[in-house]
């Protein structure tokens, strides 16, 4: 079942196009990460879904109701869409309870507030004012407030960008767990590809106003639809190759090829797909090493002078000057 369906949504501000033929489907109960560089239209998409912005064309269906479309334009307050803002947007003149209970009907308010605060782990903060909370706590209150009226869908706009790095990683996990425990459907907007991969059940990559690829995080990461998506979602080594039937020839060697591309192609390899095997007689050597603790990133030069990156575990530790042979596990071929 689909919770949100955006179809051919377009939106331009003056002469800048924010969304063009934007399509997105969000299945019920899933978290979709909407990721793209700044200016790719993610936030506009979220605002269109929430009803704060009106598209120039296209339709948006929430649940089984068209909220925007030809002749239809449902007000934001009638869409049952919870929103978590980048700056949390907590009402500064209300307590935590006041904030969380604001969207709940009088009858169930006290009970529901308690329930949601328990869910986000802030039961003891109920009487605090927003400015008395830490960034992470404010974040949870914002999430609790959005969840309290039991919306069809929760929209999160760059929710972690105001947190420092350690808090951020914790909140990613926590928010995911909270959303899952609440059984919520969510769209989560970020420009940070690792955040998108960690939080989303599904990742939708946006570029210049449209979704260019959708899929589970591991699929989008391992099988990007274009070199751009590949490099956007993580480190990538892009080399040139020549494809013929059954094989692709590159300076790293000849790989088996099942695709239909022929002639000059681009071959994308993630650094962790490249394995250096220490060998004093190897024809490549390590130029530089960045050591991260849990892994190390090597810059390796081939006999032809080309350089590639390789990411391997912390051991064995390779030093600049060490000679190696290279092996490649996986690769992706893009036609030119």
């Amino acid at each position: 079942m689909t919770a949100i369906h955006c179809h051919n949504v377009s939106r331009a501000f003056d002469d800048v196009v924010a969304l063009r033929d934007f399509d997105l489907e969000v299945p019920v109960g899933t978290i979709v990460s909407l990721v793209g560089p700044s200016g790719s239209g993610k936030t506009t998409a979220l605002r269109v879904i929430a009803g704060f912005d009106m598209p120039d064309a296209g339709t948006v269906v929430i649940g089984d109701r068209t909220v925007v479309g030809p002749g239809v334009n449902i007000a934001p307050e009638q869409r049952r869409v919870g929103m978590v803002f980048q700056d949390y947007a907590l009402f500064p003149h209300m307590t935590v309870t006041g904030n969380v209970g604001y969207g709940v009907d009088n009858g169930q308010r006290a009970e529901r507030v308690r329930e949601v605060l328990d869910l986000v782990g802030l039961a003891e903060m109920a009487d605090r004012m927003p400015h008395e909370l830490s960034g992470g706590e404010q974040q949870r209150v914002a999430l609790a407030r959005a969840l309290a009226p039991e919306p069809h869908v929760v929209l999160l706009d760059e929710p972690f960008s105001n947190l420092d790095a350690p808090q951020r990683e914790k909140m990613r996990r926590d928010v995911r767990i909270i959303l899952k425990n609440a059984g919520a459907t969510a769209v989560f907007v970020t420009h940070d590809q690792s955040e998108a991969l960690v939080v989303g059940d599904i990742v939708a990559v946006m570029r210049e106003g449209r979704v260019v690829q959708t899929g589970p995080p591991h699929v989008v990461y391992a099988a990007p639809s274009s070199p751009w998506v590949a490099s956007f979602l993580g480190d990538s080594v892009l080399i040139e190759g020549v494809a013929s039937t059954g094989q692709v020839e590159t300076f790293l060697g000849v790989f088996p090829h099942r695709g239909r591309e022929e002639g000059p192609v681009d071959v994308m390899i993630r650094p962790e797909w490249i394995h250096p095997y220490p060998d004093d007689g190897g024809d490549a050597f390590v130029v530089d090493r960045e050591f991260y603790g849990h892994d190390q990133m090597l810059l390796i030069e081939l006999p032809g002078g080309q350089r590639v990156q390789s990411r391997i575990g912390p051991r064995p530790l390779l030093d600049p000057g060490d000679r190696v042979n290279l092996g490649v596990d996986e690769f992706v071929v893009f036609g030119k």
Partner: peptide, 28 residues
């Protein structure tokens, strides 16, 4: 034959401009 360095930032030329428009973006 070139090896492309990993993309650090996303040098979308629209970026800066879009940021500016966001600031004065009219409520639709």
């Amino acid at each position: 034959m070139t090896v492309q360095a990993p993309i650090e930032g996303h040098n979308d030329p629209l970026g800066a401009e879009e940021m500016a428009t966001t600031a004065r973006r009219p409520r639709a």
